[in-house]
Design a protein around this nucleic acid. Structure first.
Lengths: 148, 148
DNA sequence: TGCATTTAGTTCGACATCGCATTACTTAGT
DNA sequence: ACTAAGTAATGCGATGTCGAACTAAATGCA
């Protein structure tokens, strides 16, 4: 692997560490038994809309169908989502976000406000947010080149 | 949460997705049953030196001690590491990287060369590596501010 | 229409992660 | 020296992740 290759490898290493550290910060704040993966799904439904099929969600998160089945079962047990049969495809289902799920998401977001504020205060506006465009570009590339 | 707060949240969101997508790419290339967490530990020992205690490693990866016990047990069973009693503290142990572990790490790195090369070729030199300094800064900050 | 193939979701079994309690040892205070 | 408190690692149980096999339904094609 050449010089630039090692740098790219290093980049993903840093990404992994940041993800780990940030995940620990957020996980500690999540309401009672809510797991990061559960919150991530709620966040997805709130941001990009619900009424998705389980398979579409599994694909969006790049996880096996079985994992999504499990995550959806947990959230349904908490009444954060509702699973309805697909209107035109008998094999499939549709995921609906419930009011309780919306509230759970809002509570989770609120619980993260403090650490987020501290991080922005300490690092200064822009230190983090200036990187978003480049990261979006990389994310979009990786997303369009799965199974590389 | 204010405007900048939402951007920071978004940043960590992008980080998480990139980590997920990159992890999937690398996991698919790892030698037989090697898990990403196992490789991460090998990588740490190679990059920053071995002869660490299990607790120090658990702390470095921000995982519970029990998780590290498990990971070390797996790598020891594969003879990639060796656990020796701590010379001055009877409660503790020292982790040594074996030759086999070094080779396993080298093999894993080599197996990732292809996707890394494709990524650099497609995105262009610098697109990724230019971000490293800022990410290092953010990582160092989060590292020094655990339990925020 | 009839039947093979593909697709959505689940079940099951294996391994990873992690909190809690326990054991062994060290350190601090007296 | 003795005891109490703190610390390193582990055993156990619950939950998360995920691959292989399965079921039911849709699709393709003769």
């Amino acid at each position: 692997m050449d010089e630039e290759g090692r740098r790219v490898f290093r980049f993903f290493n840093e990404i992994g560490i940041i993800n780990q550290l940030a995940g620990a910060i957020f996980a500690a704040r999540l309401p009672d038994g809510l797991h990061v993966s559960h919150f991530a799904l709620l966040n997805h439904l709130v941001r990009l809309g619900d009424e998705k099929t389980p398979l579409a969600l599994a694909s969006a998160f790049q996880v096996p169908k079985t994992t999504m089945t499990h995550t959806l079962a947990v959230l349904e047990k908490r009444a954060a989502i509702r699973l309805a049969p697909h209107p035109s495809d008998g094999r499939s289902k549709i995921v609906f976000l419930t009011d309780a799920g919306c509230k759970l998401h809002a509570d989770a977001i609120a619980s993260m406000a403090d650490p987020i504020r501290k991080i922005t205060d300490d690092l200064g506006d822009g230190t983090i947010s200036d990187l978003i465009p480049q990261l979006e570009k990389i994310r979009a590339y990786l997303d369009q080149n799965r199974g590389i």
